[in-house]
Structure formats: C-alpha cells, structure tokens
Design a binder for these strands. Structure first.
Ligand SMILES: NC(=O)c1ccc[n+]([C@@H]2O[C@H](COP(=O)([O-])OP(=O)(O)OC[C@H]3O[C@@H](n4cnc5c(N)ncnc54)[C@H](O)[C@@H]3O)[C@@H](O)[C@H]2O)c1
Ligand SMILES: NC(=O)c1ccc[n+]([C@@H]2O[C@H](COP(=O)([O-])OP(=O)(O)OC[C@H]3O[C@@H](n4cnc5c(N)ncnc54)[C@H](O)[C@@H]3O)[C@@H](O)[C@H]2O)c1
Lengths: 214, 214
DNA sequence: TAGAAGTCGTGATTTTATTCACATTCTTTA
DNA sequence: TAAAGAATGTGAATAAAATCACGACTTCTA
C-alpha cells in the first residue's frame, strides 16, 4: 500500500482529508462540478495551492470546466482508503478521552475507535459511546491488528504507555498529552497540544499586525 | 503591545509556548542551565532550529555555556505575557467543551476560560469546571473585554456564532468545528480539526516509508 | 460558428523554514 | 595560566511550500 508516489509533500498530505470532507459536502448538496476557486473559498486554501495539490495525483480536472464532484469524490475515497477501515485504540478515558469516544470520528471516515483502556477500575467494563473500556493491564492481550492509538492519559504516564503501545505493534500515535514522547523510527507520532494552540493564538494576537496577512 | 519585531517567523512563534513549558519544567526540577542539545531531545525540535528561534530575540545564551534556565524562564514569561491574563470564552458546552472547561488550560498559562455559553437550557446556569454557563442569547451582553473564543458548537452553528463573536469584539477564535469559518481580516482563526489530524496520520502511515524521516 | 469567459496544470519565482558548519567565546581543570 | 572541551549565534546552503502568471483547452452564448 506504501506506493511509489510518496513524493506528495507533507503539507499537501495534511490537506487531503480536508478536501475530502468538503467534496463530500458538495456531493451531498447535489453539486456536479466545482472550481478550485470555489473550493478555495470553502476551505480557505489558496486556489493555486489546491490545483497544485490535486496535480500531484495527475489531471483530476478539466481546463475551462473545473472538477467533476463525483469523480473527485471517488478519487479521494480511493486515495484516503475509505474502504479499508483503520482500527484505533484510545488510552485514557478521562475528560478528553470520553469526548472522543462519544464522537468517534465516524462522520465520513476511514477510522474507528474499537476499544478503550483505562487504569481506573470504576471505568473498566463500561461502554462509552459504544466502545468497551478495558483495564490497561489487558493492553497487550487485547491490542491485535491495531495500528493507531489515541493517547489521552495524564502526561506523566505518556512515555510509559507509549512504550507498551509500540511493543504491542502500534505504528501511529495521536498524542494529546503535553509530553513529547520518544518512539523508534518506524513509529509516527502527531502531537496535538491544545494548550500550545491556545497560547500561540494569543501570541499571534498580541504580536502580529491586526490587519492584512493570514 | 504589538511591538515592532513581528519579524519572528510564524513557525517560530508556534514553538514558543512549547519551549516555555519545557523550560518551566526544568526550572521546577531545579536545573540551572540547559543546552540547545538537551532541549532538542526534550521537545523533539532540531537543536539548530532552537538556537535560531531563540536568536530572533537576541542573544539569550552564552557560548560554551548554554542557556541559564532562570533567565530563559523570565524571558519567556515576559514574552508570552504570562502576567497579563487573556480572557477566553467557550461556546458550546458539549462533549468537547465540557472537557476543556474541566481542564481550563491553567497549568502554566496566561489564559483562562472565564465564561461559557450554550443554547441548551438544561446546561445554562450550571457551573462546569468552575466556569458559569450562560445562555447563548446573552452572548452580546456578557462578552466584554474578551479577546478569544473557543468554538465547540455543532458545525452548522459555527458561522452564525462566529459572526456574533466578531461583532462582540472577539479577535481570535480557536475553532474545533469542521466548518471553515469566514471572518474579517482583523480576526485570526486557528482551526483544530481533530478528524483531519487522525485521518492524515493514517494517510502518512499508509503512504510514507516506514523507517527514516519524521 | 465564432468569440468571450472560465479554468486547469504547471514552469518559474518567491517566500518561508530548516539545517549545516564553524569562528567565537565561555567554562573547567590541572 | 594555558589548553581542552563545550556550546552559542549566524552566514550560507538547502529544502519545502506557496504563489504568480500564462498557455492550452472547454464551455457557453449569441
Ligand atoms: N481535557 C482537556 O481539555 C485537555 C486539554 C489539553 C491537554 N490535555 C491533556 O490530555 C490528557 C488527558 O486529559 P484529561 O483532561 O482527559 O485528563 P483526565 O485526568 O480526565 O483523564 C485521564 C484518564 O487517564 C486514566 N489513566 C491514568 N493513568 C493511566 C494509565 N497508566 N493507563 C491508562 N489510563 C490511565 C485516568 O484514569 C483518567 O481516566 C492529559 O495529558 C492532559 O494534559 C487535556
Ligand atoms: N467531541 C469530539 O471528539 C469532536 C472531535 C472532532 C470535532 N468535534 C467538533 O466539535 C464540535 C463540538 O463537538 P461535541 O462532540 O462537543 O458536540 P456536542 O453536540 O456534544 O456539543 C455541542 C454543544 O453546543 C451546544 N449548541 C448547539 N447550538 C448552539 C448554539 N447556537 N449556541 C451555543 N451552543 C450551542 C449544544 O447544546 C451542545 O451542548 C462539533 O462541531 C464537532 O464536529 C468534536
């Protein structure tokens, strides 16, 4: 599956799910075609950037016409592996973890949280958002064929749990703890650091010119 | 406050709160000095990048020595306006909103969620995580001197609420809804799109070589 | 059917960010 | 006090991303 053309820029790859969602919306609205300009207004990405992004996958559009929504949609479905479901485990059924379980990222996705783990006996055995919560001691037993984990434990536990996840064969971690975890080269971590996001927004507000740019 | 040197690259500005947090940790641990190399290992940012980032603020370190933790800390405190508290409002006390209210980003921060709003009468009047929940109809009345809003409403409400926030004088919005909202130039929006984050992680796992590069 | 309007795909350019690599300076120690 | 070692700050190089700008082709309209 790790096909040749991993020459897609990372910045592009990060935008693909966004495009996918909006194209899906358009489809539901019954739109038949769309231009890079329209799409640009909807997703707030420069239209030239959109055309460039799409062009890495070949000629998806028609000059003078734009893009066929149906075609684009089927292309993205294929590319983002809509069909092949990625199993996700969530570790730490606290405030954040619970919110994620209720949401479960299922709107138009290729991912599903299949199980959750917690150290708190009070939570073990419950179902949250339709997902069973197991005890963290059972992690190694239960975690089969699970590629991705969402980490929402206290930051002090993050590194320890990470090592167990890696050992159990997880290859991608979405880390919501403020800890910067260390992993082997073959594991990919995306840090989502909500406090940093808030603080950097505040920094931009205070230090960057109010009008123009961005 | 919007000082001259807004010539700090955006990429640098986004890392500042991260640095700040780790320096704070070091300080608590009683460390007196730190090198860019050590810091690099902790925050997973190349050491040259760290030195470059710091250098935008002048010479914060000493050659052959490294950085004095205390000095660095006081510098960051000043720079990130630790003293001046930024008031934040949260709109939408649902799954995510509730989690944020309980957390309240107060660990070492310059931000505080001071009030929350929801359309659900059942939630109005409650206190969640020590924050009072008001009815969304009261938004314009209550929202004074609030610069930043966190948006955790259903995506269909996002644009509408955004317009009211902007009208009420908010200049920064942290948007957790999948909707890409439209704002005037003087308002800054940071989108945090959790589904996209998860999907793009999956995409990277499937399409990018397993070893090397992160 | 012809001309106008619209839009893509992409070379070229520009902008932004990262990384290399080293002269310089500080610390430490004997 | 001198020599070895450590680590900064930064010019230069490189890499990555965004944007410009236009030729080529499509569609629409009269
Ligand atoms: N809640 C937020 O809004 C928010 C915002 C930013 C960052 N974070 C970070 O996200 C993480 C989770 O935050 P939270 O508010 O949900 O915390 P929380 O305390 O509500 O939840 C943590 C959960 O992890 C469980 N846990 C503890 N040790 C464990 C272990 N060894 N194995 C398995 N489970 C374990 C706890 O029982 C608890 O249910 C924290 O690292 C926090 O810093 C949270
Ligand atoms: N929960 C998650 O894990 C998660 C993940 C990704 C994205 N999101 C996005 O975050 C947003 C919130 O998600 P959630 O799971 O918390 O949803 P939710 O339905 O639990 O919460 C939404 C809250 O907004 C309130 N609300 C509705 N209309 C309102 C209005 N006009 N004014 C004020 N409040 C109003 C509702 O009463 C409810 O309390 C959604 O847009 C969702 O797509 C959530």
């Amino acid at each position: 599956m790790s096909t040749d053309q991993h020459k897609i820029p990372q910045a592009t790859a990060k935008r693909l799910p966004l495009y996918y969602r909006f194209i899906n919306n358009l489809h539901h609205q019954g739109k038949l075609r769309v231009s890079s300009k329209e799409l640009s207004e909807a997703v707030k990405v420069d239209s030239a950037t959109i055309r460039r992004d799409f062009s890495y996958f070949g000629a998806l559009g028609k000059k003078g016409y734009g893009y066929n929504v149906e075609y684009l949609l089927s292309f993205f479905r294929k590319t983002l592996d809509q069909d092949e479901l990625t199993k996700v485990a969530l570790i730490g059924v606290g405030n954040l973890g619970t919110a994620f379980l209720h949401y479960n990222f299922m709107k138009n996705n290729n991912t599903k949280i299949e199980m959750a783990f917690d150290a708190d006996k009070g939570k073990v055995g419950e179902e949250v958002g339709g997902v069973s919560v197991y005890h963290i001691d059972q992690l190694e037993d239960m975690l089969k064929n699970t590629d991705v984990a969402i980490l929402t434990v206290p930051s002090s536990e993050a590194q320890n749990i990470t090592e167990r996840l890696v050992e159990a064969g997880v290859s991608g971690i979405l880390n919501f703890t403020p800890a910067r975890i260390t992993v082997p080269d073959h594991v990919r971590v995306h840090h989502i650091d909500l406090s940093v996001e808030l603080q950097s927004l505040v920094y931009f507000l205070k230090h960057y010119p109010l009008d123009e740019e961005e």
